[in-house]
Write a protein that binds this DNA or RNA. Structure first.
Lengths: 343, 343
DNA sequence: CTGAGTTTCGAAAGGTTTTCGCTAAGGCTA
DNA sequence: TAGCCTTAGCGAAAACCTTTCGAAACTCAG
């Protein structure tokens, strides 16, 4: 029984001796077989963790291009596409391969997360990036148990504290958007945000609130609506806001898609933007530039966020110490045609 | 020395005996080690092929989700994103995993195509789908040699005759677009197409030509410009067309992106669409619907094309006989606001 | 309490990969 | 040309991981 492989890494046999079980049993745990009691499995897992065991696949993977997995809700939005393109471009330039999976509509036949993380280990994946997708803590726990690095980008639900995340300076962006509108003279400014629980949405909202409060404006809760980052939410949101006794003169939308929805509904009603209603979007996708009037929008460096996520993931995979569990890239307000002083 | 594993599949030892080398040498070939002469390697590869050797990983992978690779130029356009989403959605529903790679700006450090196809074999990929990306015949030959199924979607260069491709009824779409404009009374209709060599572009062009000829209109070569499927091409194209002594009254753009470019340039010049210039796009992406005025466009079923490509690929992988080497899904002209009778 | 069925585990037997040293070919120096 | 060194190519042996299969322990009805 050898206790370390030639390159000094612990072998299955070493783990077996540590735990007091046989080598095959350790092998079964590593491979997720079912014929191991929960008790034994736990002990072995602990020892694997302790000794820092790597499967030969993982050890061998040196030299082969690493593979990272990217999990999406779907590539429906411009947002996802741009982030993905950032990841892919960077991946190509450093020789990393990318595997994609859709998490949103988890299909019944699909592999469970246990199986999925098992595969990630088997095939020597460097790690997984979640993009704006919902996941539970148990998902993440499954990855952590197998020592698979995880990075999340703008998750829809708040991740546990120790998960590495990449995002933009949403608070500053929200504040910049509101300040821009305030500077134009608006006083009734609505916020049509994304999912209420999403961290990025909360940060944008509080940036907006902070600007309003600094300007000494009382916040009217009727002017704040949460929903999905979708065109439909913009359409519906504008409809509701116009039904108020005192409608807003400006709207800060939580995403460009929402803003496009507002724009579409405004056009349908013959409401002129920006003369009768100012509008600020968020994301700075091509949508903002192409719409008519073009959208003033808080630009997120989506491409860079993808790249940064990948870089951070690989750094984790190499076992480097990260400076921070949260990377925030700067947003920038780009003023276009959709904002003007109130009538 | 066992010649077949417990499940009847040939083992390394069997290959070794066939070739007259040792088991380790065969192992080295399988793993792509360098300390094997080209001669020996070739012999061993032939024997592996002959005997249909599968690595334990591959043997075990039966029952595991198949993996297909999708090669893109980049996810920059709405077109790519939608096709990809179609592939992903279908893949998720049938339990297939998708790996992505960017082919366009082949980076120097990246793996060569030989290595790439080797990896595809090693890791049991079911096949590869090329989406609007350029590839050479030698690329395809590498895949064919290793018996990896290939499907291409709207390639930028004409593929060899025996490669399976998925696309839309581009000719019919081009004809429908031109007929629509003719029906409105236009007689000078320009075509701002995509890359001249691309099959899909040729088909659209000839559909357009066919409609013009049926209407007894002589084709003016000055009205036909090829370029990339990009916004910039639309901007530049309109500029050129307006510089003609007799500018067109309508433009058929080879893609929505090009049409958006035309629209943007027209707005900059104060040229009204559709009053002074009618415009038809191609693709039917969200861009067409969201732009102002909304674009009359030949809608391609991009989502379905992605799904169809994946289905066709898997059918090939299962060794089923394909009905045809070319699958064409129907296009449909959707009339919106950007077309009207000439002034 | 008994016997059948199930779960858990390890011994043994593959199957594969790695290490290491041998051999032969080629190049370099004298 | 002879002698020496270097390197590529290969295989024997050893190391490693996985699977099979049976034994032991445990469960649960009858």
């Amino acid at each position: 029984m050898t206790l370390t492989s030639s390159d000094g890494k612990p072998t299955l046999a070493a783990i077996a001796r540590l735990t007091g079980v046989s080598t095959p049993t350790v092998s079964k745990v590593v491979n997720g077989r079912q014929d191991v009691s929960a008790d034994t499995r736990a002990k072995v897992l602990a020892a694997l963790e302790e000794a820092g065991y790597q499967s030969p696949g993982q050890r061998r993977s040196t030299g082969r291009p690493p593979v990272v997995e990217v999990a999406f809700d779907g590539i429906t939005s411009n947002y996802s596409a741009t982030v993905l393109d950032g990841i892919l471009t960077h991946a190509a330039s450093i020789g990393v391969e990318v595997m994609l999976s859709v998490t949103g509509s988890e299909h019944p036949g699909g592999p469970s997360l246990g199986q999925r993380s098992q595969r990630l280990v088997d095939e020597g994946r460097a790690g997984i990036i979640f993009v704006t997708s919902a996941f539970t803590d148990s998902h993440l726990a499954a990855f952590r148990r197998r020592r698979i690095p995880v990075v999340v980008i703008d998750p829809l639900n708040p991740p546990p504290k120790d998960v590495v995340s990449v995002g933009a300076t949403n608070w500053a962006g929200g504040r910049a958007a509101a300040e821009h509108l305030l500077g134009l003279g608006h006083r009734r400014i609505a916020y049509l945000g994304g999912p209420e629980a999403a961290d990025c949405n909360q940060a944008r909202l509080h940036g907006y609130l902070s600007a309003l409060m600094s300007a000494g404006i009382e916040v009217d809760p009727e002017l704040i609506w949460h929903g999905r980052f979708r065109v439909e939410h913009g359409i519906e949101g504008l409809t509701r806001l116009l039904a108020l006794s005192k409608p807003p003169t400006a709207i800060f939308a939580g995403s460009d898609s929402i803003a496009v929805g507002v724009l579409r509904e405004a056009r349908r009603r013959g409401l002129h933007v920006p003369e009768e209603l100012s509008l600020v979007g968020f994301d700075g996708t091509a949508q903002a530039e192409d719409s008519v009037p073009s959208l003033t929008s808080v630009t997120q460096p989506l491409h860079d966020m993808g790249r940064s996520a990948l870089r951070t993931l690989l750094r984790q995979a190499r076992g480097e110490q990260l400076d921070s569990h949260r990377v925030e890239l700067a947003t920038q307000l780009v003023v276009r045609e959709s904002t003007a002083p109130p009538a």
